[in-house]
Design a protein around this nucleic acid. Sequence first.
RNA 1: CCAGACGGCCGGAUGGUCGCCUUUCGCGGUGCGAGCCGUGGGGGGAGGAAAGUCCGGGCUCCACGGAAACACGGUGCCGGCUAACGGCCGGCGGGGGCGACCCCAGGGAUAGUGCCACAGAAAGCAAACCGCCCGCUGGUCCGGCCGAUAAAGAUCGAUGGCCGGCCACGGGUAAGGGUGAAAGGGUGCGGUAAGAGCGCACCGCGUCUCCGGUAACGGCGACGGCACGGUAAACCCCACCGGGAGCAAGAUCGAAUAGGGGCGGCACGGCUCCGGCUUCGGCCGGACCAGCGGGUUUCCGCGUCGUCGCCCGGGUAGGUCGCGCGAGGCGUCCGGUAACGGGCGUCCCAGAUGAAUGAUCAUCCCCCGUGACUUGGCGGGGACAGAACCCGGCUUACAGGCUGUCUGGCACU
Length: 152
Amino acid sequence: MTDNPPSGIGRLEESGSGQPGVAASGRSGIGRLMRRPEFLAVAGARRKWVAPGLILQARRHDERQHPPASGPAVRFGLTASKKVGNAVARNRARRRLRAAAMELLAAHGTPGYDLVLIARSETLVRGYAELKADLAAGMKRLGAWRDGAVSS
RNA sequence: CCAGACGGCCGGAUGGUCGCCUUUCGCGGUGCGAGCCGUGGGGGGAGGAAAGUCCGGGCUCCACGGAAACACGGUGCCGGCUAACGGCCGGCGGGGGCGACCCCAGGGAUAGUGCCACAGAAAGCAAACCGCCCGCUGGUCCGGCCGAUAAAGAUCGAUGGCCGGCCACGGGUAAGGGUGAAAGGGUGCGGUAAGAGCGCACCGCGUCUCCGGUAACGGCGACGGCACGGUAAACCCCACCGGGAGCAAGAUCGAAUAGGGGCGGCACGGCUCCGGCUUCGGCCGGACCAGCGGGUUUCCGCGUCGUCGCCCGGGUAGGUCGCGCGAGGCGUCCGGUAACGGGCGUCCCAGAUGAAUGAUCAUCCCCCGUGACUUGGCGGGGACAGAACCCGGCUUACAGGCUGUCUGGCACU
């Protein structure tokens, strides 16, 4: 649909270099991972952080994984398996993780990363502040943390 | 007031901050345009079970001559309601409860076949283990009495008679005992050798007439005389219902890549020969020579691949539709005991797809604990559970609460 002749396929080597390009790209939105291959790609990166409230997986964009050039800079996905509980419990865990992720990624998300948040049974009862702290620690550990909270 | 029976309803509330899905209306930018991007406002956004996926439908595709039949599956008192149902309502029959009320897989056992364990004499066609009764039957048996053989007494033995017992045999009986879930009706009186529907009364059962009821069924009466045991949730018979699969149904658009077909351009040797077709322009197939590539000659391969552009068709990822105006909600009136039906008014009210409907904070409400001792404080908790095409039911789960009708008690007037 959007593939116009001009840009065509010249594409995206640029994103490899990254950081300065962020401002250049102009798009700093937060996107969601929707498809199974995207989740598998993040899991395949083998960069994982386990916290009481959640498990965090991260993956940098690179040449082979080609997010749409015009797409959001940071993307995340949510997973809650049956170990968490019944459907009500899974939904609640997902929603809490999503709320925390939206809050932190807007301020501290490093462009060029895909993150996957996996719910645990502890996700349901952990305090919200602690949950955010778990996520922040994981992001720092995996290098997806950005300090200056200057979003446009 | 206490205890209980049956229904109906709710299923945390309010407010900040930050967000999501959908719909609609503006503004700005961009584009020829459909639209896209940004931004702002309004509307809507999980359940009574959304669950289990157990029935019944709508809808879609497949199959099929309308259909019928067999097999298989389901349902099963009667009447009504409903689009339909295994659902609901109202009755009937049976069982339970002082009662309100509750429970019931409730067609057919003279259509047929099978089965009835253990126990017991015997389990379906009648029979008889113990017992009771009768006997012009029998006994080397026991007791009593009489009389004789030998005159009296005693004892023993033989023989005969009478009575009784016991045993056997023959017959009568099914009252009683005993076994069992069930034993050929039950209770009472009469009757009898003992007994027995043998006779009688009542109950039960069966048949018939009449009456009430749409019907299931109920009632009165007469007759029969025990003949028809139970099990159909064993097969079976009868009546009725059912074509199959399911929104991952189905429809539609369709990228990249690979591949198929067609047209055109570029490129592309022959006054040669043979065969076929011809609209006589040529076209197709083959041979030969020339050519190109490899290679030292012989020789081998190519001889049209290619390339560019456009079009057609299949199909994958993916997108869109299906998809919410409906057996719809609410209110009211009318008919009906009710389920339900009808009229009028009014409303538009979730549509996600790694899946929106939320996160967080505060206050209040309700429980529990604690220290306190009657404001308040501190800590913890608030069920079952998340739409996935839709609708009608059933079943199962559920903290707490509100409310109506009725029943049985107690107290008071």
